[in-house]
Design a protein around this nucleic acid. Structure first.
Lengths: 185, 185
DNA sequence: TATTGTTATACTCTATAACTATA
DNA sequence: TATAGTTATAGAGTATAACAATA
């Protein structure tokens, strides 16, 4: 079997895992300041993006199971950040709308996200940051992560086991984790 | 409030979250090929690093609660990848040792990790990869992540809420997630 | 008969607390 | 009395399946 042709030292994969985890965890704490979890933030953004979508459409877009979506919307509606309105024609569906307060909180959260972004990139010149993003984009392409794509939640989806060869043996659980939920784009 | 002074586009924070998540998830699938979860891999590596440590010492080093450690070791011992041996002087403590099979599997997993690393960095020159690592290291320093440091598991630890200002309101849950568990350094 | 949203249920994971045997 | 390891237990979180209203 071929030896790694890279110089020794920390791997990109490990570093990315570490950073990605720390980054999103910290971001979770930050939006927690507003009483939000990252997925609440993601949900609010999805709703704002296209106000008045059916609840399920948003759930599908975010890759959240319908039942989970219910409690998520419940929580945000209880805080008057968004509201369910009846569909004019179909009495089964509920259309999601951002409230004024929801917009305000979303803006606050977005500002905190921007602030966090600046903290992350402190000391990097604009050029360095651009290059970092460029390199990350190439890595993303390597691992088959489309540009704006959301990594599919553990909803089944089963990509190819392993790119190259393998050492056989049975397949294990293969666990997942919590989604990124980081600051927006 | 200050506007982001960065050019528009995807943020580093979001991209890192996304990549870190995708990376570790994929790595989980890869080692799953060997019937291992990432934390099994981490455990095996920690044991190999210093063969014959007490079980709790390893647990502490990995930030795993003692009770979780038990089942983890149980699983690996059931597969004869490592074994508990009595401490010569203290009959309470169990010393962890890698078996021959454990070493073999660990090597297989390491090889898969190296292969995954190559896939991640495909198309990057050695210089580009070095620069990527350098930039990531600077980002890691920015967010207060020591070099080889393991991000502390949700074991309590409560860092400062937010670096800069804030929009008040009560503190939310602030959730965590699964650790990196990516390929080794 | 199919679909939207909801509720109920069952499962997984993890950590805390209780317990045993040693020290 | 304190500690290593274990077992039992309880909580959070999440997905699957059953359900009611409507199409």
């Amino acid at each position: 079997m071929s030896e790694p042709d890279w110089p020794a030292g920390p791997s990109v994969g490990f570093t990315l895992s570490q950073l990605g985890f720390a980054t999103s965890r910290r971001f979770g704490q930050i939006v927690g300041t507003l009483g939000l979890e990252p997925r609440h933030f993601a949900l609010l953004r999805a709703v704002r993006e296209a106000d008045g979508q059916p609840q399920q459409a948003v759930a599908e877009r975010l890759g959240i199971p319908a039942s989970t979506m219910v409690s998520l919307v419940d929580q945000l509606e209880a805080r008057s950040l968004l509201e369910r309105r009846p569909h004019p024609a179909d009495r089964r569906t509920r259309l999601l709308h951002l409230t004024g307060r929801g917009e305000a909180v979303l803006e606050e959260a977005t500002a905190l996200g921007a602030q966090w972004e600046r903290a992350i990139c402190a000391g990097l010149s604009a050029g360095e940051r651009a290059q970092l993003l460029s390199l990350l984009r190439r890595v993303a392409a390597n691992i088959g992560l489309a540009d704006g794509e959301l990594p599919d939640r553990g909803t089944g989806q089963r990509p190819e086991p392993v790119p190259g060869p393998a050492g056989s043996r049975a397949a294990g659980p293969g666990r997942a984790g919590n989604g990124p939920g980081g600051a927006g784009r």
